[in-house]
Nucleic acid binder design. Sequence first.
DNA 1: AGGGTTGGTAGACACTGTCTACGTGCGGCC
DNA 2: GGCCGCACGTAGACAGTGTCTACCAACCCT
Lengths: 192, 192
Amino acid sequence: MQADEDLRARLIRVGGELIERGGPSAASLREIARSAGVSHGAPRRYFPTHLELLSAIARDGFTHLTAQVSAALVEAPGDPRARLATLARVYLDFAAAHRGRYELMFRHDLLESGHLGLRDVSLPLFQLLTDLVARIRPEPEPPARVVAGALWASLHGIAQLWYWGSLPLATGATDPAALLDATLTAHLGRTA
Amino acid sequence: MQADEDLRARLIRVGGELIERGGPSAASLREIARSAGVSHGAPRRYFPTHLELLSAIARDGFTHLTAQVSAALVEAPGDPRARLATLARVYLDFAAAHRGRYELMFRHDLLESGHLGLRDVSLPLFQLLTDLVARIRPEPEPPARVVAGALWASLHGIAQLWYWGSLPLATGATDPAALLDATLTAHLGRTA
DNA sequence: AGGGTTGGTAGACACTGTCTACGTGCGGCC
DNA sequence: GGCCGCACGTAGACAGTGTCTACCAACCCT
């Protein structure tokens, strides 16, 4: 079964690289197969459908994102507020550094297909966020889940609108740090 | 030049309808042409490229969204805080009612192509938002532009993550009103 | 040693977006 | 009033795509 893992993993890796270079549209099934050095029918052994291969690549992206956030939190300060700021910064950095992959990770047709396994890939990260929020804001209202959801939506919105040009145009700013700071302050109070 | 307007407008309308029914992927150039009753080469007279036709459909969506928000604000109360809540609610309602079109409106390849005319389509709405924020929060820090940007990002994030399944899954809630309320309260203070 | 399964190839099919050559019918002009 | 020209649309070709099917080769297992 090692051979299976080989081509399967190679397809995911090569597909990810293609997306990094040319965006999601560069990752056609046949192009991925060509870049991996196999015929266009080969991927079908592992991914019955193009969408499932893309879902695997997206899942890989979530794994990397979660790992990157976790790694950054290991050497982050103990203050929950500062840790949450670290989480947010790493999240936005990831979106900036891997725009194509980030876009893929939130494509609605992937999400709706069910192949992505949304629950498994996104809940760990959301749990990190919720825990930090709960430690920062001990008040019961609004519940930490809601605040964490609002923060996540903000992060996602900033990532998309900023790096795709809408927010720089509208706010006239040059980097999203001010937006992020305003968001965190609004939801969690001014930093200590 | 009336004939021009006819087919041109029909393509935009028919394309929009296809997207409402089957999502952006249902709006292939040839399918739009078929639905409009013309040959597959006809759209080229008006839109040199599929992407430019899609951009026109997206622009149409922004026009509708702006009109819907403006109409709602006409009969909204005079209190700026309540007016902003109305704006946000109409925005989310639009995204929910026209998911395919909303997705199209924020497709990165459209935004990056320049055919969308992002400045023209999005600034009017952002200006409404900024004005309301400035009236609600007279303090200079953070500037109204930044708060408005953060709010817009939140709206966009809630619209995407909610209606695509991520946020309901993570927060366990059944509608996005709580998230919206938490966001507005955080940025603008508790409602009067 | 031989047979079945696993992992990959190769070709067909319908469909897509773009390009090009071709009609066709209307309006203006001498 | 006849003719030209052009705007508008048709039709076919081309490369590329995702999926499906038939084939093939190498390997494992008993």
